[in-house]
């Protein structure tokens, strides 16, 4: 028996959605993963092992090859720019990246500031817009920044827009739509090609059917 394929997964909602896809693709995963504090979950029936990681760290595990595959949001892929294959759009946890601000926001020429969890991506975006801004990196609760005057705009993920509304913020521009992607380590992609291609193919079929 060969080693199981190792898959790095983000904890939480994306994990559940991805697990559903795998079940539909015929991988015998248990109906529920009960102990949510576990970091490594083995599913020998499906010949899979899951590593549960912070969403932002999934591409890192895959790039270094401790995970053969991973499920990562396009946002983290752009931000982290890791050397991994992005093979399939899973079309789950759809959302988008947007610029938001308080409703009375007016463009200022005096050192405009933007807060974001995605400093690289935000820097790149404003560069492309030809706008000079100072990027402030935050690790969460980005909406707080304009409320307390840390920044006049933010770049963040928007799925329903509820968080923005609750904090009295409005969207200014959409940057890019985001979905979760299946990513593969370049060496695993070659050394375990048959098993990985099989998994990609089965998932691709499910994703296509869902779309139709």
């Amino acid at each position: 028996m060969s080693e199981p394929l190792t898959m790095a997964m983000p904890k939480g909602r994306i994990f559940d959605e991805a697990a559903d896809l795998l079940r539909e693709a015929g991988f015998p995963l248990p109906p529920e993963f009960d102990d949510s504090r576990k970091l490594i979950v083995d599913v020998p029936e499906a010949d899979l092992r899951f590593i549960l990681a912070k969403p932002m760290d999934v591409p890192t595990y895959v790039e270094h090859g401790v995970a053969d595959l991973g499920v990562a949001g396009k946002d983290t892929m752009i931000e982290e720019a890791r050397d991994v294959y992005e093979v399939l759009d899973l079309k789950i946890s759809e959302c988008y990246l947007a610029v938001a601000a308080l409703p009375d926001y007016k463009k200022t020429d005096i050192n405009p500031k933007v807060a974001s969890k995605y400093p690289n991506l935000a820097t790149q975006y404003f560069k492309e817009q030809g706008e000079q801004v100072e990027i402030i990196k935050l690790n969460g609760s980005i909406e707080l920044a304009p409320l307390v005057g840390l920044a006049d705009r933010i770049v963040d993920i928007v799925s329903t827009g509820r968080t923005l509304r609750e904090n009295g913020l409005v969207e200014l521009e959409t940057i890019v739509p985001i979905t979760s992607r299946l990513i593969v380590n370049p060496v695993s992609y070659r050394m375990k090609d048959v098993r990985i291609d099989n998994l990609i193919e089965r998932l691709a079929k499910v994703v296509e059917e869902e779309e139709a």
């Binding site: 790039e63 270094h64 090859g65 401790v66 050397d83 380590n185 370049p186 060496v187 070659r190 050394m191």
Partner: peptide, 11 residues
């Protein structure tokens, strides 16, 4: 061409 070893994550 690129060479890969099973115990390593990069070519």
């Amino acid at each position: 061409f690129e060479g890969y070893g099973s115990r390593l994550g990069v070519p």
